[in-house]
Amino acid sequence: MRSATATLAKAYLLWFLPGLLLQFPLVALGSALRATGIIKPAVGFQVLSVLLNIVLAPLLIFGIGPWPRLGVTGAALATFISILVADVLIIIYFEKKYHYLRFRFPLFTPQTRIWGGMLRIGVPAGAEFVLLFVYIMLVYAIIRGFGPAAQAGFGVGARVMQALFLPVVALSFAVSPVVGQNFGGRRADRVRRSVYSAIGIASVMMLVLTLIAYLAPAALIGVFSHDPRVIAFGSDYLRIVSLN
């Protein structure tokens, strides 16, 4: 069982890791758009990528119609293709529609001063994700002795928790350019109003999602697995972690 799980994980990562690499230009170019107040195209390309992934995943996993049946590999390949398509489209948008920035490869020379400023801002945020990665690896190592059901329950529970955070993440993406533009325009009243409104909306959303995760964790885990042991482990995880 463990050998089969490891084989499937390797097959998934073979396409998923290159897909993660493709996320960098998509996120960087989307951030550039949001920084200049252009929100809809950045969001549109991300949404298109997700929708394309939703369509391709079942086709490639189950081999529907003329598509090959690839199983776990199909899920990763669908992610890779959807991100690649979004990358191509956002690059075309930059070249054809966006007037503030252009790709000029002769200008791609080391800018150590700019890099230093970016690293001072980005490294602390990046360190947070590194710690999260270390935490997940440690948890998987600790629960390894409890068997595949415990690992699956933790994995599903962690993904559900990440999904529950998405509304707040989306809210933060929307608020950042609004606050930045009003700060630059010296409209402190709008800055305060935007921040307070975002805090209020986020608090209400997370309170509702916390209650759902605490009171009905089995329903959330049951969407992804019908194994009673996986549901039990995942429910315990969700019920506890929802309190933070």
Rank of each mutant, 00 (worst) to 15 (best):
Q111N: 14
H226Y: 11
S235W: 00
P68W: 08
Y196L: 15
N53F: 11
L215P: 06
I201Q: 02
P41I: 07
R2A: 03
A158K: 01
A75R: 00
Y140W: 04
M205T: 07
V191E: 01
A32W: 02
A219N: 13
T36M: 11
A198V: 14
P177S: 06
R144Q: 06
S203A: 15
V179E: 02
L14I: 15
V123D: 12
S3P: 04
L29F: 07
F129H: 15
L164E: 01
W115T: 12
W67Y: 13
G200Y: 10
I54Q: 10
Y98L: 05
I199S: 08
G157H: 00
P110Y: 14
R102T: 11
Y98C: 03
P41A: 11
G145R: 13
T79W: 01
G222S: 11
V27R: 12
H226C: 09
I64M: 09
I136L: 07
T7M: 08
L14D: 04
F146I: 04
Y98T: 04
V160H: 00
L8G: 05
I64T: 11
P68N: 10
S203M: 14
L56I: 10
I143N: 00
K10P: 04
S3L: 10
A57W: 02
I240D: 05
V204I: 14
R239I: 03
P41R: 05
L20Y: 09
A141N: 10
E95T: 05
S31L: 10
H99Q: 14
S235Q: 03
R190H: 09
I121Q: 14
G234W: 00
V88H: 11
R159D: 04
V241N: 01
Y93T: 05
S225C: 10
A28T: 15
L132I: 02
Y98G: 03
A170D: 06
F16D: 06
A149C: 09
L211V: 15
F105C: 10
I212K: 03
Q151F: 01
G184L: 12
S176D: 05
D227L: 06
G117A: 07
A86P: 03
A125C: 06
P68Y: 09
Y135T: 09
A125H: 08
R113V: 15
T79R: 01
V230A: 02
Y196E: 10
A76K: 01
I114Y: 05
A174I: 08
F105K: 08
